[in-house]
Design a protein around this nucleic acid. Structure first.
Lengths: 200, 200
DNA sequence: GATATATATCACCATCCGGTGACACTAAGT
DNA sequence: ACTTAGTGTCACCGGATGGTGATATATATC
């Protein structure tokens, strides 16, 4: 048995992550985390004070949201605004689709308030805002609102698709449906921008 | 103590409802329901077989989703299509905003699969489809998709607003923000419809 | 090598959970 | 009045939970 506090802390954090990923947030608790991490639960109290403290640390520990900067590398700076807005929203949704952990955290944030969900919510907000600002979409509040609404809608569909309980049959995990949804979003954005100032 | 099986069943169902409404779905269990209903938990097993059975019955018991027919009475049959689509989506969102129970059930449906969440999901789907079909919007799949996306987005914002954790500050419960969101949805729908066949 | 401190293990507590069996009461049928 | 079926109460089980105190062991310091 190695005596290494830092390593133990990491094991606990990793245990929390895999527990959430595998069993969902509803099963999270001191005993379950300790079991998953292969560690005595008393160490959670020693190193993190409480479950709350562990969640707080966990929120800072890992980049839970996908790295937005990487996501948007492929978007040409000079593309029409409606295309940029569309891409941002869709890339965001794809990132969520590819991260079961993030899905569970989004769901948790919709369900209850705790240090992790609050920090996670703020983080998502920050990244989303940054993405929109970087691309020059921020000055127009209507565009921001619309992007947020659509992004949230896609996130909702992704979450509903998980439990064999898709909304209106729109299961985002099915490629064909995903592409249809993306097409609709794209043409809607285009129409919206054209209806105002004709874009850039 | 009155000996009335039917009345006891009602007390249990009502207990489940108030329990979900007050404490959220995470606290639902045989003990908690029995306590809330002021009834011995063995009666839950006797009358409903199991927790699953109770949830199944509960789903049929009450009109959980808002009555769509009533909601759309105010929409003129001959209004432009984009206006109809907008109204349907917004009325739906308002109904959710006014029903803490429905909010909790939506959240539950996003989290896990059980008889109640599945039936609830199907019921929402059915009502939404019916609303769109009644107003003649069904033939156009793009319109249906867009409506669903936007509706889901608003539902997401409503859920996030509950726990002092609003997405991007868009707290749907604040009148001023709600009106802004509605305006954006409205003008987006208009632009989208105009971009196609010029509406009705 | 002896001591002190950080680290890990174990045993235990009260409480809650889902679930069941035994019993008491009440009302109706005969 | 006596049985019978329906209804409600109670006590209990094994197991899981959050939380804590006492103890063992490894590492560092002198």
């Amino acid at each position: 048995m190695h005596r290494n506090a830092e390593q133990t802390r990491q094991k606990i954090l990793a245990g929390l992550e895999s527990l959430i990923t595998r069993d969902g947030f509803t099963g999270v608790g001191v005993n379950a985390v300790a079991r998953e991490a292969g560690v005595d639960k008393v160490l959670i109290y020693r190193y993190f004070g409480s479950m709350e403290g562990l969640l707080r640390t966990f929120a800072d520990w890992k980049d839970i949201c996908p790295r937005i900067a990487d996501l948007y590398e492929g978007i040409p700076e000079k593309a029409p605004l409606h295309e940029i807005a569309t891409r941002i929203v869709i890339e965001h949704a794809q990132a969520l689709q590819n991260s079961p952990l993030a899905q569970e955290l989004v769901c948790w944030a919709l369900t209850e308030e705790n240090p992790l969900t609050v920090l996670f919510g703020k983080e998502m907000e920050h990244r989303e805002l940054k993405a929109l600002a970087d691309k020059g979409l921020i000055p127009d509040e209507d565009v921001v609102m619309l992007s947020v609404i659509v992004l949230c809608g896609l996130q909702y569909l992704i979450l509903r698709g998980r439990n064999n309980n898709p909304m209106m049959g729109y299961d985002y995990s099915k490629t064909e449906i995903r592409e249809k949804l993306e097409r609709v979003v794209s043409s809607m954005m285009k129409a919206f921008f054209q209806g105002r100032e004709g874009g850039r």
